[in-house]
């Protein structure tokens, strides 16, 4: 090991052993059309270790206080993309946001992501989001006979589109975009990210087709470069940069 004293790990372990629970207020925007057409804010008090996730807080509410609270989740560590929501006004994954990192002294507001129809509490209709994704031909297109072995690709060519392969389709970017809020016809950042992933893959031969799709009036030119998407991405993808690269490819036809 680097040093015989393990200061940071030691501190973390000691803090974990101390287990200091605090009381946190969750202020959640509730909506259930089976009961009312209006949404309402509801407060819940939760005893929680500040090193726990917002998702843990939501589970405590659902499991101990109110079983009707409804949200999607699965892996609980930022890989499956189920639990994108608006936490204190910012799009994040509930499973990747620790209580201590969002000022637990004040009520933590939680609401559904914007721009997609809310179905119940924190659940939105994801279908328009996935439709935009499907519309950009998000799959490798090649011509000619397949090689017997793998297609060759240099490490540099592989690196060229690495950033956009990380997308987990959580919709945090698309539902943070003011253009998308105002006009649901816009493809949105996530679909463009997934087009980028193939346009800049040296093995792919349908870049021109995808660029034409994104050259549409609802395509890439609607982007106003507000960087909300980049800020929102829980995978750290440079979304705005990817969109800019697609715009540039449309002008230069080089990719």
């Amino acid at each position: 090991m680097a040093t015989p004293t393990l200061s940071k790990t030691d501190q973390m372990e000691a803090a974990a052993a101390a287990s200091p629970f605090i009381t946190v207020t969750f202020r959640i925007r509730r909506f259930n059309p089976e009961i009312s057409e209006e949404s309402t804010w509801q407060d819940f008090q939760v005893e929680i270790d500040p090193k726990e996730r917002v998702l843990d807080g939501l589970h405590k509410i659902k499991w101990d206080l109110d079983g009707t609270l409804t949200f999607r989740r699965s892996c609980a560590h930022g890989i499956c993309g189920s639990d994108a929501m608006r936490i204190n006004g910012k799009n994040r994954l509930a499973c990747k946001t620790l209580i201590k990192d969002i000022n637990p002294e004040k009520p933590i507001t939680v609401e559904a992501i914007k721009g997609l129809t809310v179905m119940k509490d924190l659940i939105v209709d994801m279908e328009p989001f996935f439709q935009a994704y499907r519309d950009v031909m998000p799959f490798l297109v090649t011509k000619g006979n397949e090689p017997t072995r793998e297609r060759l690709q240099s490490a540099e060519d592989r690196e060229r589109f690495d950033d956009t392969t990380k997308c987990i389709l959580c919709a945090a970017c698309t539902s943070s975009c003011p253009v998308f809020w105002n006009d649901g016809q816009y493809f949105g950042p996530a679909a463009i990210v997934n087009a980028h992933r193939f346009i800049f893959d040296s093995r792919d031969e349908a870049g021109e087709q995808r660029l034409e799709i994104l050259n549409d009036k609802d395509g890439v030119w609607r982007c106003r470069t507000t960087f909300n998407c980049t800020d929102a991405c829980p995978r750290g993808i440079e979304v705005t940069k990817a969109i800019q690269e697609v715009k540039r490819a449309l002008i230069t036809r080089r990719f």
């Binding site: 297609r151 690709q153 240099s154 490490a155 093995r203």
Partner: peptide, 15 residues
């Protein structure tokens, strides 16, 4: 790989 999976590559470009 043929379906498009972006494997890490060797210096020769193989998987």
């Amino acid at each position: 790989e043929k379906m498009g999976l972006p494997f890490n590559r060797t210096p020769d470009g193989t998987i």
